[in-house]
Simulated scan of single mutants.
Amino acid sequence: MGVEEEVMSLRKQLEKCTPSADNADPDQSGVLDLLQSLSQLKMNLNILSTTRIGMTVNALRKSSKDEEVITLAKSLIKTWKKFVPETNAAGDKAKEKKKDDVKRKDDKHGSQDGNGSRTDEALVRSFPSKPQATADEVRLRCRDMLSKALRGEADTELPDGMGQTVEDIAELIEDALFKKFKDTGMRYKNQIRSRVFNLKDKKNPALRENVLTGVIPPDTFSTMSAEDMASDEVKNQRKAFVKAGIDAAQLAKVEGTKTDLLQCGKCHKKNCTYNQIQTRSADEPMTTFVLCNACGNRWKFC
């Protein structure tokens, strides 16, 4: 097992020890051993970015009441911060400065809502949201299914312009669905399967690319219906079918002629409306379309 796989395995075990909405008081007896195992692994920036182990350890540090666990967690985070390039640190400072400038600007113009709280949706959107950590096995499996569907097959390249990792996007989608249904019941699972199916659809690659690049945000994708997720080709086909159905329904009613000379083969009543249309060449007889006013049965004859 490689270092990245070991870190992922330890991360999942640590998440089970971290309080969550599903488990407010988890067993933390083995946390110290897990953290010590992490301290013995040879880490690098790529592993830290891919596994996001730093977030898990930091969440554990905040929730733990064991001083030894808190100390070791702080030590690990401090060590891992050394892998972050100085340019990233400078970028973070620039973001913080920009955030402070916006806040000062709001203070100057009194940008507050009716309750006096600060409202700046543009600033909130500029910082990607983070999913809630969970140790629930069903939710973890669903996140893994979404992640694999987003990543695609082995020879499929990820698009340019991704602002978040595949795992982050998958977890945000799952988190939004869980918040919507409040449990991991059948409705939740059906919605997960629907999104996995549509993301894997080879005839609709634009959907996967739009989700990965943020054109369709995770929270928006979590609320999309099957019709919304369909490809443009399928949407056009559906429109054509609907139009054909409407045309067929209205065909016998537009300038139709009522008659009791024709009998419905379904209900055997003689309450019909017919319409004759030239559907073939001029030297061919007209086609008669008939609607039974009693049961709605339709048929045609030449």
Score class of each variant (00 low, 15 high):
F83V: 00
A94Q: 08
L72T: 00
D106T: 00
L76K: 01
P131Q: 07
D136A: 09
G91Q: 06
S39R: 06
V57W: 09
K98I: 05
A59H: 07
K95Y: 10
L72H: 12
S39Y: 02
R118A: 12
N88K: 04
K82S: 14
K42F: 05
K16S: 13
W80N: 08
G110R: 03
S29M: 05
L48T: 00
K99P: 00
E96A: 12
L123I: 00
H109N: 09
K16L: 15
N58F: 09
A24P: 05
A24H: 07
T79H: 14
G54R: 03
K93I: 09
Q13L: 14
S111C: 08
R52D: 15
K74S: 15
T79V: 05
S49V: 04
Q40A: 14
S75R: 07
Q112E: 12
P131T: 00
K16T: 01
F83T: 04
D33M: 07
S129R: 09
N44I: 04
S64V: 03
N46F: 11
L38R: 00
R125Y: 12
N115Q: 11
D100T: 03
L76G: 03
N23R: 09
A24M: 11
D113W: 10
K81L: 15
L72Y: 03
S37E: 14
K12P: 01
D92T: 00
S63H: 10
Q28E: 13
S126Y: 01
